[in-house]
Structure formats: structure tokens, C-alpha cells
């Protein structure tokens, strides 16, 4: 019984751990670092659903993420939408973006999808730069509600009347919950028909199609889920950062990390992106503080190239003897 629900129990324990961390007084840096790492768990897990299982590389993570961020900003500007609404709408629109790009390019060779995604971030950034309602090129400041409520329950209250004492703690927990949910989704896909079909596509698309796998449909489903989760990750950003400008929202670092973390962790199973993002995310948080952010980026780039060339099955592959 316990064996069978090991993963589900693990999820609940992880969620409880996220909650407990918010209830102890920690140095703010730890919340900041933890939030970044959890966000990377979400983003790289999302990337891996299409990239790892299906073998279709998405270079546009920053675009999907930035879209989610700016959808949330627009909703706050429009009618002061709550965070849950922002997340749902941002996810839906990012999924729709995936559907659009995918519908045009996924019927062609895999490189065309990759190339089309390369330009997404730049184009969306162009639109945002020209759209003053969400701050344009200068960026925008967001004032989070002082005492947000959810289903009538006060979530945050500095005076102690809510579940969390401040907004950062609440958003840390929320990001934890989203990250865990994304891992659960990825694992469900991996062990289901969709995951097996995507795997067949990755191994040999023509053979998969001839064995009855509806390749285009599965690729589109994966692109939509993957894109939607990236949009969700972006939606939490404005509330968390309280100031967003286009270079932050559309940062190329997201694209690199979302690709490098699964590749380094191992793309063939859900554990890979989790291991990759926790490991690399931690190294990055330490490196940014102790060395410099440039060196930190250089390390990611080098690790990506090294793993892609020498150990295509990543760290998890070593333990499962996949790297020959």
C-alpha cells in the first residue's frame, strides 16, 4: 500500500515541507533562493514534457514565461485580478500560444519548431515594449494586495491574522505547490499512453506514425501542456518581484536553464528535471552571491555543452546505466 503510493506521499511531504519553511523565521535570502529553485523545477519539468519525452526542443521558454508574466500584469492593471485567476488565464493563453506555434511548425521537421520558438521571446518583447498599458519598455510596478483572501480565508496578514505573515512566504508556498503539481502532471504523462506515444515519436517519428500513433495530435497536446505550465510559472512573477520590465520577463537565462537543467539531470524521466533544477539551481544561487552572475551563466553553458555531447542521459542516466 505504502509502496504503491510512494510518489503521492512524497508529494504531500514536499508540500508540507514547503509550508513549514514559511512558518519559521528564515533569512530572506533563503526564501528568495528557494523560490527561484522551485520556479526552475516547474519550468524545467514543463520543458521536459515536450523536450524530454517527445524530443522536440523548445528554445522559447522565456517567451512563454514572459507571456504569462505580462498576462498577469495586464489582469492586475485591468481589474486587480487575484493571483489564482492570473495563473489560470496566463496558463491558458500560454497554452494557446503553444497550440498556434505548434500547429504551424509541428507538421514539419523538428528543427522548424525549434527555430520558430527561438524568435518568440524577441517578438513578444517587441509587443510589450510597444504596449504602454503594461508599462512598455520602462517596466511596471505592481502593488500586491495587503491582505489577499482566497475562498474567504485571509492568506496573508502582517499582523498575524492570516496563514502567512508576508506575501513572499505565501508566494514561496504557492510556487512550491505549483512545482509539485507540475512534477505530478509530468509523471502521470510519462507513465501513461501520452508518454509512451511521445517516446515512440522521439525514437522514430515515422515508425511511430506507421504504428498508429497520432503523432501530430500528441505533439500538440504536449506543447500545450508544456507551454501552459511555463505561463503559470510566469504568472507568479509580477506579484513576487513587484517590479517587472521586459528584459527581466523575457530573459534568455530562462531558455537556457529550462533546457540545461533537464539535459543535465536526465530528460527521459520526471526525476531528471527535478534533480537538474535543484542541483543547478542551488549552485547558481550560491555562485551568484559568491562569484559573479556572469561566471554562473558561463558554468551553465559549459555544463550544457558537456552533458549534451558526453552524457546525453544526464545524471539520472548514470544511476540507471543509460550513459554508455
Amino acid at each position: 500500500m505504502l509502496q504503491r503510493y510512494r510518489f503521492e506521499i512524497g508529494c504531500v511531504v514536499a508540500l508540507l515541507a514547503c509550508f513549514l519553511i514559511t512558518q519559521v523565521e528564515l533569512n530572506r535570502f533563503y526564501y528568495f533562493a528557494g523560490f527561484a529553485i522551485l520556479q526552475y523545477v516547474l519550468i524545467s519539468t514543463a520543458w521536459n514534457i515536450l523536450g524530454g519525452y517527445g524530443g522536440y526542443i523548445n528554445f522559447g521558454t522565456a517567451g512563454f514565461l514572459g507571456l504569462g508574466t505580462y498576462v498577469a500584469i495586464a489582469m492586475i492593471q485591468w481589474y486587480g485580478a487575484g493571483i489564482i485567476e492570473q495563473i489560470i488565464v496566463a496558463g491558458a493563453l500560454a497554452g494557446l500560444l503553444g497550440l498556434g506555434i505548434g500547429y504551424i511548425t509541428l507538421r514539419l521537421k523538428g528543427v522548424y519548431f525549434a527555430i520558430a520558438t527561438l524568435a518568440i521571446a524577441i517578438v513578444l518583447e517587441t509587443f510589450v515594449n510597444n504596449w504602454d498599458y503594461v508599462g512598455g519598455a520602462a517596466g511596471v510596478s505592481i502593488l500586491p494586495p495587503r491582505t489577499p483572501e482566497l475562498l474567504g480565508i485571509t492568506i496573508v496578514d502582517r499582523k498575524g491574522g492570516g496563514i502567512f505573515y508576508n506575501n513572499k512566504e505565501w508566494l514561496f508556498f504557492l510556487m512550491g505547490a505549483l512545482a509539485i503539481a507540475s512534477v505530478w502532471i509530468a509523471r502521470t504523462i510519462e507513465f501513461g499512453k501520452l508518454g509512451r506515444g511521445l517516446n515512440a515519436i522521439k525514437d522514430n517519428e515515422e515508425a511511430a506514425e506507421c504504428m498508429g500513433v497520432p503523432t501530430l495530435k500528441l505533439k500538440l497536446i504536449a506543447t500545450v501542456i508544456s507551454g501552459a505550465l511555463m505561463g503559470v510559472a510566469g504568472a507568479v512573477f509580477p506579484s513576487y518581484l513587484t517590479f517587472v520590465d521586459p528584459p527581466t520577463a523575457f530573459n534568455l537565462e530562462f531558455a537556457v536553464n529550462s533546457l540545461a537543467m533537464p539535459m543535465i539531470g536526465g530528460t527521459f524521466t520526471w526525476i531528471g528535471p527535478v534533480v537538474g533544477s535543484i542541483l543547478l539551481g542551488t549552485v547558481q544561487q550560491v555562485a551568484i552571491v559568491t562569484i559573479s552572475s556572469e561566471i554562473n551563466l558561463l558554468i551553465i553553458g559549459l555544463l550544457l555543452v558537456i552533458f549534451v555531447t558526453i552524457a546525453p542521459h544526464g545524471i539520472v542516466g548514470w544511476f540507471m546505466k543509460k550513459n554508455k
Binding site: L252, L298, L304, V308, T309, P312
Partner: peptide
């Protein structure tokens, strides 16, 4: 690392993407 092993063409893409990023940071 890629052509000779007839590895998935897409891994080669990730390789060039890594190069892009390294070059930019340097």
C-alpha cells in the same frame, strides 16, 4: 559527437544553443 553517432538532430541544436550562450557570456 552528433553526426557520426547519428544522434537525434535535435541534440545538435542544444549543442549550438550552448555555444551561443557561452559565446555571449564570454
Amino acid at each position: 559527437f552528433f553526426e557520426r553517432q547519428s544522434a537525434e538532430a535535435l541534440r545538435g541544436l542544444a549543442f549550438f544553443f550552448g555555444l551561443l550562450f557561452i559565446a555571449e557570456v564570454v
